[in-house]
Amino acid sequence: MLQVSIYRYNPETDSAPYMQEFQVDTQGRDIMVLDVLHLMKEQDNGLAYRRSCREGVCGSDGMNMNGKNGLACITPLSEVVKNGKLALRPLPGLPVIRDLVVDMGLFYKQYERIQPYLQNDTPAPAIERLQSPEDRDKLDGLYECILCACCSTSCPSFWWNPDKFVGPAGLLQSYRFLADSRDTATRERLSELEDPFSVFRCRGIMNCVAVCPKGLNPTRAIGKIRDMLLANAT
């Protein structure tokens, strides 16, 4: 029996959030946290959480497990359970809609703000735009982001200024386009980022790197953006 303590809040029936205890029979198997949630939902059908692909590529089930953000579907119990206990909470710093479901609006807004699409003002050729394998390699470690928000919601700078600091996820995507040899909007992109909040609220504490379920490194990308800003303005 696994003892799971889970954050519960239903705005229609609860005046305040509370932690609820569940006993879950895992039959001794090292299953994923998402499987545990399924078992709990069979006990209490009203338990709310997001999930989709259950293989770590859709980014739906980011949550806080025993104090650390991650994806429930690719986190085996052996990786998180301490002393036979598991505490599940919604991603920190975003408004809770119900149980583990948070309002991702601020997170998506910061993503949209960096213009996350290729911009190229030259006429498109009849075939693809050519790109050398070396230039393409520069996108590795950037384009794989699944927008799960594990990084941004583990970042204190994002907690304090979610409306102004783009956050690690958005900045990783910003650099994905800055680094793309096919994108011609580098100057415009940089000019949107030089204020004291958008990029420079990053203090380099690397919480984002520690939690990214895809093993990406937003801090390094932010450093690269800073280098580009500096090179552009001095």
Partner: peptide
């Protein structure tokens, strides 16, 4: 590709 899809590439850039 023109929209930005990051396809892998051959040495000739295609």
């Amino acid at each position: 590709e023109h929209m930005g899809l990051p396809f892998s590439r051959f040495d000739n850039g295609r």
